[in-house]
């Protein structure tokens, strides 16, 4: 599949933003500390990432001015459900933000708003993942690893981004660093299983079943329908990702797993939240996000669409 930058940016940025929203709600519930520094940076960061992601995916449409229509078909379409949930999440999220930032409160009803926002945020990420997981045409997406992967990576990047805020406000890093580490490891484990399972998966369809000519022998494309690339070849027939898959997987592992885990281990081993720790967790957040972007790029670029069977692929 062609890795459109707008979709990669949307899924990774909104994932981190929604994840951060969950961690802010957890912070409120666990500590009751409405530290203004965390609020003033945390909410613009979380909602900014979400909004930037949504806007980037909207401007990528052929008719952005009609985007509102996308909320109408929630009965059948995961994309519609995602749009609706994304808008609904803003309501409790903004209440939660107002309470924390303007009124200095994140207890009681304000905390409840945070809890509702956290739940809706995760449901939105779930809907995003289901858009991809529900596509039977793309075997690398149509499996049980897509939804857990999106959810775990949203929580991991969100957790990595709340740590610099905690460090800046002089709060304790340990409580959040340990579960964040858990989510980083969980993301890596899901991705590892995803790659081994999908690399060795039996083909969903072949050029033989696509043309129905299998009984004549191996079916090969002799002549395509056009001299240059059609829309389908441009959109679905992306091969560069598959060529460099191994190198890119290593890069994703280095930035997304090795560096964040090393930093989190150091933070856990040396309690306190000095400037050093703050700089390190900021580095981990940036590195982790780069890792997830590389992973998401691969998620698209490695995926083979069954319609490419008509254009020369033998199996998908």
């Amino acid at each position: 599949m062609h890795p459109a930058l707008s979709v990669i940016f949307f899924t990774t940025a909104s994932g981190a933003g929604y994840g951060l929203l969950v961690w802010l709600a957890l912070h409120a519930a666990l500590t009751g500390d409405a530290n203004p520094l965390i609020g003033w940076i945390g909410f613009p960061l979380a909602l900014g990432l979400v909004t930037a992601g949504l806007l980037s995916s909207t401007f990528h449409l052929g008719h952005p001015e009609r985007a509102w229509r996308a909320m109408s078909q929630w009965r059948s379409s995961w994309l519609s459900r995602e749009g609706l949930l994304a808008v609904l999440t803003y309501i409790p999220a903004l209440l939660f933000a107002v309470g924390w930032v303007l009124l200095g409160r994140n207890d009681g009803l304000w905390m409840l708003a945070g809890a509702v926002a956290a739940v809706l945020a995760m449901v939105t990420v779930y809907c995003t993942a289901m858009i991809y997981q529900s596509l039977k045409t793309i075997p690398r997406w149509h499996n049980g690893f897509t939804v857990p992967g999106y959810l775990a990576m949203a929580m991991a990047t969100g957790g990595l981004w709340i740590l610099p805020l905690l460090a800046l406000s002089g709060s304790d890093l340990q409580t959040m660093a340990l579960p964040t580490m858990g989510f980083v490891l969980l993301s890596a484990a899901i991705k590892w299983r995803y790659w081994t399972a999908t690399d060795n998966a039996a083909p969903t369809a072949t050029s033989g079943t696509a043309t129905g000519l299998a009984n004549l022998g191996t079916v090969r494309l002799l002549e395509g329908p056009t001299t240059s690339e059609t829309y389908v070849m441009r959109e679905m027939g992306y091969r560069i990702g598959r060529k460099h898959a191994v190198k890119l997987r290593r890069l994703a592992g280095f930035f997304g797993l090795v560096i964040p885990i090393a930093v989190l281990a150091a933070v856990l081993a040396m309690p306190g939240s000095g400037t050093m720790a703050g700089g390190l967790v900021l580095l981990a957040a940036i590195s982790g996000s780069v890792g997830v972007v590389v992973e998401r790029w691969l998620y698209f670029a490695e995926a083979k669409h069954v319609s490419t069977l008509y254009y020369g692929e033998e199996f998908a």
């Binding site: 449409l61 952005p64 045409t137 959109e235």
Partner: peptide, 27 residues
Amino acid sequence: DLCIGCKLCSWACPYGAREYDKTEGVM
């Protein structure tokens, strides 16, 4: 008149039957 040009339908088609009109911004 309702299509927003998100292209998801073309992803969902196994037969590569849908083609996006870049000029009009619709499928």
